[in-house]
Amino acid sequence: MKTRRILVSALLLSATLGLCTRSSEAGGDAIVVIVNKANPANSLSAGDLRPIFQTTKTNWSSGGDATPFNLADDNPLRQDFDQAVLGLDPDRASRYWKDRKIRGGARAPKQLPSTGAVLRAVATSEGGVGYIKASEANASVKVVARIAGGKVSGP
């Protein structure tokens, strides 16, 4: 009984620390793509987002810098986003960026440590674009796309 107690406590602890196996789309919560409120775009497709997050499109169609913010490679949200938008699993995404570096291509999007940081960065950066859990979105940003079931759809 004592052993089970310790085991369950350890599981609880590891779950809270984010050490457990990832589940798709952050535990069932959809991902939303957010832009700064000043951005005139109301909806972005996977085709719009792909070159921005590949840093081949560096300006918004309406003008100004497009500044994508990524989460860390091992973040489940990042992995779901890469799969849905770039069509790359974590291994291929990692290879993609290594190849880009060796070619001398443009730098990868800036990585932020958490969705909270992404939210704040997008809210305060005019050209900012990022992705967070749907439940974390608030009025400081504009939702322009939603990712659920590996598909990108309108907001």
């Binding site: 730098r107 440590p113 909270g116 940081a117 939210l119 960065a121 997008v122 950066s125």
Partner: peptide
């Protein structure tokens, strides 16, 4: 609170550098 602290420590869009 942790996210806010991290975000505060990370400049959202640095005007002088981008990374």
């Amino acid at each position: 609170q942790q996210s806010d602290a991290e975000a505060a420590a990370t400049p959202a869009e640095d005007s002088s550098s981008s990374g």
